[in-house]
Design a protein around this nucleic acid. Structure first.
Lengths: 335, 335
DNA sequence: GGGGGTCGTCGAAGCGCTTCGACGAACGAT
DNA sequence: ATCGTTCGTCGAAGCGCTTCGACGACCCCC
């Protein structure tokens, strides 16, 4: 592996000049620059990342903390991750992958040992134990999600409360008055997962504002969970004409269940999903849905981190507005 | 951030002694070690990763290259990734996430700049353009998959040829003679994806050995693709009594399709899937399947990398034997 | 035509760690 | 007692890069 000294010698300049060619931090004459660049190309020189980090205190690496639980939506996580990696590369950064199960100590390890310049943390809970630790780090951090107390930490996410309101507005506009929310599994609520609570709160509030008759029900995974959930809904809110489904895994069995009960969509019951676009499109009937824009959120997280890294100011909480797209799962109730 | 010098001062020893306490590369008296460790704990010292990498030429970081295509099985990839990260951590390594779309240059970038000690590359194709580049790197590499010419590179994977044979043996044992393979989408074959070809070859060979009447058919994603695939199969191999499905995405629509055509599983038609265990279990009927042990393969990849890193020898191709587990989707044909 | 700037380049220091050689002390064997 | 070892520790060199201050050369303006 050639070093910067080899390049300098080959180009007949000093190592510092090579460095300045690379960084552009000082003016270098066109001829010199050309010679240096030729030498770099010829020798196949790549600066040593460790040496660079040591000298400049910059690693050009971001940490990305992903959950690896199974009850959480794998494709969504994957979309976030690829969005983050792709966006990071456009800013000349690489991504170090951490799993949530290392908890606080994992964050501290990579931060204290200066392996990364900044962190992006997914799957945030309401009273996330990692938050106090994150506040103490010298590296900037961006959360994907919204903890109970976001003070001192920058957060980005979809505006789930607005998303909930959006689904209800749409259904109300179609004329629905009795609407049930099929939520995530109870374990998600139990963990205090941020997006679940925000969606629930938005749903309840919008329901009151619109004067609707609604109920909410978590939904265990699997056929059995869905069956039970639907039964409870029918018992508690008889004559329900629309379902808002904020549970990607339940979606499929739920549609199956409705079909085998002879309830047609949208003739007998309307459904609005909250899920990634491709999931909504991959169902037997294309579902009217509020998109979960993993890609945008991931990209925004990276942009925000970059802003923080070069000291620019940024708002501390940034919630993306939801967009509902109409497909084929909503109609006016038969009445 | 305290440095090794701060620790040395606090413990009343020289920096090199602290280093030897950390690395254990020279004997240190119990008292000294205790004092040093106390100082480390008190100051919250973490060695600077860059400095360490520079001095020792070891980064304790692995690169993991994942595909980010959409036609490829997201949950499987995610399982690989988490298995790799988890296993890497047990060896005190972290994982840098690269996407396949950076191609050869991404590999060269992280390798030449000494960001990683070794690489693990997923989603290998038969004539993968990255292979020659990988051979040239000074860092050891482990492929998950099997290229056409694996010379000079270590590979680990499930033995897909054996897996195919296993499915046929099982179905033959049940008395099936007419069996069709529902394969991955044509684009997967077109790309020369290693596992698809190996499964196909194993299927064809075992079919001949067992004297079965079989056919194979790729399957486009989506309901339409499945419908077409089934129609072709019925046309080409009338009276087919069993299906081997090597296409995770097609699985669900395929079952739907069979059901709505009034073909019961396993009474009218048997199905063996090749997919991760949880996918097989998540279907309306628990499917008899050959497990794709992402977790084991990921773990094995890391173990292999570690072996290479400390100079131990390792076989150049390691294929895990498949295991078929019986569930409820196979029975003897009505005859 | 001399003073003040800017431009382009160099040299040296230093980032925080590992590692090698050296060296005194302690110890067992003769 | 003496010599050779092993044990435990230290000092210094160096890993490859960035960055700061310095310094000619050159240009512009009064």
């Amino acid at each position: 592996m050639p070093t910067i000294n080899d390049v300098a010698r080959a180009a007949g300049v000093s190592p510092s000049t090579v460095s300045y060619v690379l960084s552009g931090r000082r003016p270098i004459s066109a001829q010199t620059r050309a010679r240096v660049q030729a030498a770099i190309a010829e020798l196949g020189f790549h600066p040593h990342a460790g040496a660079r980090a040591l000298a400049s205190s910059k690693t050009n690496v971001l940490a990305l903390v992903v959950p690896l639980r199974v009850d959480v939506n794998v494709p969504v996580i994957m979309q976030f991750a690829t969005a983050v990696v792709t966006a990071a590369r456009t800013h000349n950064h690489d991504v170090l992958l951490l799993t949530k199960d290392e908890g606080t100590s994992g964050l501290e390890r990579v931060a204290h040992s200066t392996m990364v310049d900044a962190l992006i943390v997914m799957d945030v809970e309401k009273d996330d134990v990692r938050i106090p630790a994150l506040r103490r780090l010298k590296q900037p951090t961006v959360l994907i999600g919204l903890p109970g107390d976001p003070a001192g930490i920058v957060c980005v996410d979809l505006d789930f409360a607005a998303a909930a309101a959006e689904t209800l507005r749409h259904l109300a506009w179609h004329g629905h008055r009795k609407i049930a929310l099929v939520g995530p599994s109870p374990s998600v609520y139990r963990r205090g997962t941020s997006y679940a609570e925000r969606f629930l709160a938005g749903f309840t509030e919008a329901s009151a504002e619109l004067g609707l008759e609604t109920m909410t029900h978590p939904c265990e995974p699997g056929q059995a969970g869905v069956r039970e959930c639907l039964a409870d809904i029918d018992a508690e809110l008889p004559g329900v004409t629309a379902l808002v489904v904020h549970n990607e895994e339940a979606l499929r069995p739920l549609l199956d269940q409705l079909r085998s009960a002879g309830r047609r969509i949208p003739e007998d019951i309307s459904v609005v999903a909250v899920c990634p676009r491709d999931v909504a499109l991959g169902m037997p009937i294309p579902l009217t849905s509020v998109d979960i824009p993993s890609h945008d959120v991931g990209g925004l997280a990276v942009e925000t981190v970059m802003k923080l890294l070069d000291g620019r100011h940024t708002e501390s909480v940034r919630l993306l507005p939801p967009t509902l797209v109409e497909r084929e799962s909503c109609a006016s109730p038969a009445s």
